[in-house]
């Protein structure tokens, strides 16, 4: 939108002014957005009800009184601070380590152009498409053999590599656009390979890498299948897995699960609001000018 010129805006205004269509379009897009948001609104509405209020008045009624009973119920059953800590540990380590591993590998592929680099990148791309089902059983036994089952580090190792493969794929293609002259100038100044990476290449790629860190954090936070299998013990569970384990127990009040869902939702929403600009920039990152 930043590129919209003043004159264009003026033309558009002239053409559309007074058109009844503007309200029709706004209404259509607005209703769509409302429907998208509706499940979340329902969640908030019902998380603050007592269970008797819910069973008497149903999910659509306004709460008769503001109640934190459901939250207390959830926190009594799930060690939420521990789950939060596990999730933060896993996501932060994976985001930073994954991007670092990707940067190193991409340096060898995009700048070093080691033999067979095209094939390596193609294999890494395939790896990002691989269904986790085709890895899970050996990973399960591997983690068990190493004593890492029910340890957050098993999930960390798996996702550092999987996200690292994606980072390598993305960063190596961006790196191939770094001007050769820049690297040669650095080499003439006596910079060795490591110095070229950290002082020349890394700063150029910083915007792309920061976008990757944000995405890796969210993707890892939301991961479901591999953590579900590798982290069966409540002490090692992440926020989403703790919620889904609890839901499997039939005797739980719906309001309690509602409150748990809301609690599990809050960290990602905070993160989303903080990094919204990075996320929407993510799509256009990689422009090296």
């Amino acid at each position: 939108m930043s590129r919209t010129t003043g004159s264009r805006r003026a033309t558009a205004r002239r053409a559309l002014r007074g058109s009844p269509w503007r309200w029709v379009v706004l209404a259509a897009v607005g209703v769509g957005a409302l429907l998208t948001a509706a499940p979340f609104l329902l969640l908030v509405l019902n998380a603050f009800k007592s269970s008797s209020d819910y069973s008497q008045n149903g999910p659509l009624a306004w709460p008769t009184s503001f109640s934190l009973e459901a939250f207390e119920g959830y926190l009594a059953r799930v060690d939420f601070p521990l789950a939060l800590w596990n999730s933060v540990t896993i996501s932060v380590v994976v985001a930073f380590l994954g991007v670092t591993l990707g940067l190193l590998a991409a340096y060898a592929l995009g700048i070093g152009r080691v033999r067979g680099n095209t094939a390596v990148v193609a294999v890494l791309l395939l790896a990002t498409m691989l269904p986790h089902e085709a890895l899970i059983y050996p990973l399960f036994y591997g983690a068990q053999a190493l004593g890492l089952l029910n340890s957050v580090w098993s999930v960390v190792i798996v996702f550092v590599v999987l996200q690292g493969a994606f980072a390598t794929y993305l960063l190596s293609s961006v790196m191939s656009t770094v001007p050769r002259s820049l690297l040669e100038a650095a080499a003439l100044d006596g910079a060795n390979r490591r110095q070229v990476l950290w002082r020349v290449v890394a700063p150029i790629l910083l915007p792309t890498m920061s976008v990757l860190v944000v995405f890796f954090f969210i993707w890892t936070w939301n991961e479901f299948y591999i953590p579900l299998v590798l982290l069966a013990d409540p002490a090692s569970q992440t926020v989403p897995i703790a919620l889904s384990t609890l839901r499997g127990q039939h005797s739980i009040d719906i309001t309690v699960v509602n409150a748990g869902s809301l609690l599990s939702l809050i960290p990602t929403v905070i993160f989303f609001v903080l990094f919204q600009r990075t996320l929407s920039r993510g799509v256009t990152a990689g422009a090296i000018k």
Partner: peptide
């Protein structure tokens, strides 16, 4: 340059290729 590829390469063998 192969050294820069090594950390991901080892991880890839252990977590993707071998499994």
């Amino acid at each position: 340059y192969w050294w820069y590829l090594a950390p991901l390469g080892v991880g890839f063998l252990a977590v993707v290729a071998l499994p």
